[in-house]
């Protein structure tokens, strides 16, 4: 053993790189390369000469920042972002609020049928987003919806859920219905990991269940709340399934309703993958900034609290 010290030290030196190699290759092949290619495409464009008919009429040329300036100037992309912002302002608070409420209720001592209830709340998450959107879409259409039938019979007003402001509620409802269960499970799991001694101590001090929930449980699951909020922001920025599925049912959802729908439309509707690549890059950058900005803000607060 001792005689081969020099050789072994050489081997040890190279070992970390050897172990890193598979991960590096996978990272380069399936992460860096496709993203790099998309960024490369975003700086290209097609140039047509003459009538553009026949061979050789179309050439891929360097575009510089043209696709990016185009994306910034395109009001439809900004409008889409604003629409998604409005949608997110409904979805995120409602979904996380409900998830926290359900998790706390399931965690309370007096709850019955907890496993069944947990499953029932979680189940919509298992339904594919497209199917969920189709299902709700049918329920929103006045002529085929049982809700409208009941409202009609009771002589109540029948709002048009596929238009104007209510459209945002209708779309949000689909996301909330599908996402609450998942977030509830995340929060609930972290609630279960709180040591029982903490509750005992609180009870001995005379805390009511409500006080335990507000003063002990919620602060202790704050990291999971941050995590679910983080996930929800990303999911909101990427909304695509619900509006795309509802689009054929109403005039109010256009082909570029959300930024991702605009990317899809540019890539596959207009066959302009270059603009689509530029827009996709922009969306990715904004998503990164927003989500990590939020994480940093949350971390800073935690540190301040720990220090104070």
């Amino acid at each position: 053993m001792s005689s081969s010290t020099s050789r072994r030290s050489y081997g040890v030196k190279g070992a970390p790189y050897g172990f890193l190699l598979p991960a590096t290759i996978l990272f380069a092949l399936f992460f860096a390369l496709p993203i790099g290619y998309a960024v490369w495409l975003s700086f290209r464009k097609v140039h047509v000469s003459g009538l553009g008919l026949g061979p050789g009429a179309r050439q891929e040329v360097w575009a510089g920042l043209e696709n990016y300036t185009g994306a910034f100037r395109d009001s439809e992309l900004l409008d889409g972002a604003l629409r998604v912002l409005g949608y997110g302002c409904v979805v995120v608070p409602v979904m996380l609020g409900l998830a926290l409420l359900f998790a706390l209720m399931l965690d309370s001592d007096r709850v019955r049928l907890a496993p069944f209830t947990r499953l029932a709340i979680f189940l919509p998450y298992a339904i594919p987003g497209v199917v969920a959107a189709l299902l709700w879409g049918f329920l929103y259409l006045p002529d085929v919806s049982p809700f409208y039938f009941v409202l009609d019979r009771l002589g109540l007003p029948q709002p048009d859920l596929l238009d104007g402001g209510p459209l945002y509620l209708a779309l949000s409802n689909i996301a909330v219905w599908g996402g609450t269960g998942f977030n509830m499970i995340v929060i609930y799991t972290s609630l279960r990991s709180i040591p029982a001694e903490v509750y005992e101590a609180a009870k001995l001090d005379g805390a009511t269940p409500l006080q335990i929930a507000l003063r002990i449980k919620i602060p202790m699951v704050a990291p999971s709340l941050v995590l679910t909020f983080f996930f929800s922001i990303i999911a909101t920025l990427q909304v695509f399934n619900e509006p795309t599925t509802l689009k054929p049912l109403t005039n109010s959802v256009n082909t570029t309703w959300s930024p991702l729908m605009k990317v899809y439309q540019d890539a596959f509707g207009r066959n302009d993958i270059y603009s689509a690549a530029a827009e996709a890059t922009l969306i990715a950058v904004v998503t990164l900034l927003l989500s990590f900005g939020f994480l940093r803000a949350a971390n800073r607060r935690n540190k301040q609290e720990a220090a104070g």
């Binding site: 553009g52 005039n251 109010s252 082909t255 509707g269 207009r270």
Partner: peptide
Amino acid sequence: GPNVNVAYTSFKDAFGAAAK
């Protein structure tokens, strides 16, 4: 013409909004 798809999409969005 060579970009019927663009005209068609524009129709759906513009006339969809106008009809609404």
